[in-house]
C-alpha cells in the first residue's frame, strides 16, 4: 500500500471521472461553498432567490464561480471548487435533487440516468433467523 500523495504534491492520484475534494479544491471553492452552506437557513435561500447577483457578491464568489452558478453548470461549479454536499443545497433552490444533478453532469436525461441505476437493480436479503 503506497502513501497517498497530498493535495500539494506533484503527483495527485488520478481517478477516472472523479476529482477528490482536497485542500487545493477546498481553497479554490471556499467562497462558493460558504455561500451554499448559508442555504441551510431558509431565509438565506429566499434572499438568494430574490437577488442572485447581490447574494453571490456578498460571499465574494469569483467570476468563474458566478458564471457557473448563472449557467446552472454543475461541472463548472465543481471545477471552481464546489463540493457536491454544499452544491446540493444550492441545487435544492433550483428544485433539483442529486438525481437531477447526476443527469446534468453525465449529459443524459433524468429518465436515462434513473434507468441506468435501475438497470443495476438488485435486492439480496440474508437472515440468520
Amino acid at each position: 500500500m503506497n502513501a497517498s500523495p497530498g493535495a500539494m504534491s506533484a503527483a495527485k492520484r488520478q481517478i477516472d471521472g472523479t476529482e477528490p475534494f482536497d485542500g487545493e479544491l477546498a481553497m479554490r471553492g471556499y467562497a462558493l461553498n460558504a455561500m451554499c452552506f448559508s442555504f441551510n437557513q431558509g431565509e438565506n435561500r429566499e434572499a438568494f432567490a430574490r437577488d442572485e447577483e447581490g447574494y453571490m457578491a456578498k460571499f465574494g464568489l469569483s467570476e468563474q464561480q458566478k458564471q457557473a452558478v448563472r449557467e446552472r453548470d454543475v461541472l463548472a461549479m465543481l471545477d471552481a471548487g464546489g463540493n457536491v454536499y454544499y452544491l446540493a443545497k444550492l441545487a435544492g433552490i433550483f428544485g433539483l435533487n442529486v438525481q437531477d444533478l447526476g443527469a446534468l453532469q453525465t449529459g443524459v436525461s433524468l429518465d436515462e440516468f434513473k434507468a441506468a441505476l435501475l438497470a443495476q437493480g438488485e435486492t439480496q436479503r440474508r437472515s440468520a433467523a
Partner: peptide, 8 residues
C-alpha cells in the same frame, strides 16, 4: 458517487 462525470 454524486459528483462529476462518474456520477451514478
Amino acid at each position: 458517487q454524486l459528483e462529476g462525470k462518474r456520477a451514478g
